[in-house]
Design a protein around this nucleic acid. Structure first.
Lengths: 146, 146
DNA sequence: AGTATTCATCATATGCTCATGATAATTGCA
DNA sequence: TGCAATTATCATGAGCATATGATGAATACT
């Protein structure tokens, strides 16, 4: 698997929240049921996204009518901002063949192809925002989620 | 990490074997030292590759002058033949957004991009053979390995 | 103030990856 | 035959991902 389950859960849950509307909070239980994911596990995952720094990915409020919601506009939220909390995204291309220094100027035989694999993942996560996916996918997933 | 350590170890070890020559066996200890990998752990990894079916990836012989060697010509040995024993290579594109049926004809918003990520990995592993990498990389790694 | 609601947190469990070290089994060779 | 070399296998364990269930803490509402 390229992405861990935690990352996938976090992605899908965030899309649900994005689809719920602007200031509206959504309960973990509702998201968990919709995504068919253990509630407490998802709670911990969303908590990670809510706890990061001053303006995190998510915000949460406790008590009645509480829940999770996006902390930033979905258009400003890249997938990599979510995934990086749960998976190591390959930064530069680490040499697949284990060479200490594997540079463009003196590449190993696998260099270009392997770099391309990492770049495909990295670029997708960096170039795609929640807004790009939310308008359609969130609806498909969270349609009847009141 | 895209590939597990086991896969990477298996890849690098196989390249060492490919570079050693045609019928020559190489001891696990030598490969392990060269790759800086625990010997017993590597032994188990190579054993997996040697035990698969009638004509596996590797062959092994015990006792003095024993060791591991390629069971097929390096040009016929694709990286995917090695990696698939240790990692789940994404087959078709599983929908990132969790849709039950996410088809070309009715794709989710992430479909094309995510498919591309999986395809880049899959194609690299399928299109690259040990021979493609061995001639140069094996030499770099196993140069002074007698 | 009291209560229900909801997230936050803790304790625990399972299974996998990544190892380490010891022992068994097989083989080449003197 | 007997010894040394080498892979094969077993026992064990740390650490992490993936959970489950119970309890604590904050909040809205009456």
């Amino acid at each position: 698997m390229i992405l861990s389950k935690s990352s996938v859960y976090a992605l899908r849950a965030t899309l649900c929240l994005a689809d719920a509307g602007d200031g509206d909070s959504v309960r973990v239980g509702d998201v968990a049921e919709r995504l068919d994911v253990p509630q407490n596990y998802l709670s911990k995952i969303l908590h990670v996204l809510a706890r990061e720094g001053v303006l995190g990915v998510l915000a949460s409020t406790r008590g009645p009518r509480g829940g999770f919601r996006l902390a930033v506009p979905p258009g400003d939220l890249r997938l990599t901002d979510i995934v990086r909390h749960f998976d190591d995204i390959p930064e530069g291309a680490q040499c697949l063949l284990g060479r200490e220094r594997c540079l463009e100027s003196d590449p190993c035989a696998a260099h270009e192809q392997w770099r391309h694999v990492g770049a495909a993942l990295r670029d997708f996560l960096s170039d795609t925002t929640v807004a790009d996916l939310g308008s359609e996918a969130g609806k498909a997933m969270c349609a009847d989620m009141t």
